[in-house]
Design a binder for these strands. Structure first.
Lengths: 140, 140
DNA sequence: AATAGAAGATTACAGTTGTAAACTGAGAAG
DNA sequence: CTTCTCAGTTTACAACTGTAATCTTCTATT
């Protein structure tokens, strides 16, 4: 049962293009993705249609090559995806997972400063240990 | 085409139990997950079978209630899942995504210190800006 | 106006996933 | 030895995904 509509990996690639361009025609999306992947134009069209059905994208049908616009902000979509994944992890492992991510990602100076600030603040109230709840029934 | 076998969300829940216990019988897994979710025992059995087919789990069939053991380490599985997700994100957005994660996760003192250390080291060589490659063909 | 080419819509099809019932075999209980 | 029960195996089925071909309908061009 799909409580909340989710974006598949392939659909995500389409959204990235449109988020970055702000809005786009199918031709723009297709041109870029045909270079970037092995997909055929028809595949990309299918993805665009599915994204509309899922309400992640809408077509401005005023003019003829439709102009597709995102119905969800990139930041929000990222937040949802990342949270969706982290919700599955053992609480105890999240810190290590994030550290791993920091090590393996290219991050700008300003984002690093931001993170250090966030962490420094968090340090004031952080628990000595976080314990594993993998065997417990979900509260709530 | 599935280059690398992946674990579905439901399957992940089964693995969590077994990782945490080290090894387990199906009954142990079922008892815990029946409390934790709405799944029926049969559903959990299916998941165990699929995990075996995917080589994430093996059954020690020496004794009769089989004893299931993980064939992949939790840390490694987490690393793979997290990377798999982050590979889809716009490079420019990863820093913010990680920061968001830090804000929303419960993290222990020692993990925080570790992260600050990682970040401090990273600061020495981090770029001023990371730029978006969403519209570019994949290099490599 | 006739027509080609592009853009959008419809149909397709196999593999994965969520979800589970039904069946079977082996050990426990009588 | 027979029978019940539990664990393990098979089968099931719809939704979602990856992947795409085909069909239809505009729009621009001759």
């Amino acid at each position: 049962m799909t409580e909340v509509e989710t974006m598949s990996k392939a659909e995500w690639q389409v959204m990235r293009i449109i988020w970055t361009l702000g809005e786009a025609t199918s031709k723009q999306v297709i041109d870029i993705l045909v270079k970037k992947t092995d997909w055929k134009a028809a595949t990309i069209k299918t993805l665009i249609i599915r994204l509309q059905k899922k309400h992640f994208l809408k077509a401005d049908e005023a003019t003829r090559p439709y102009i597709y616009q995102p119905l969800i902000a990139e930041d929000q979509a990222i937040h949802q995806s990342v949270n969706n994944l982290f919700d599955d992890l053992c609480c105890m492992k999240k810190g290590q997972a994030i550290n791993d991510l920091i090590e393996n990602s290219e991050i700008s100076q300003s984002d690093i400063s931001q993170m250090i600030a966030t962490l420094t603040k968090k340090q004031l109230t952080a628990p000595e240990m976080v314990d594993c709840n993998c065997l417990e029934a979900d509260l709530k």
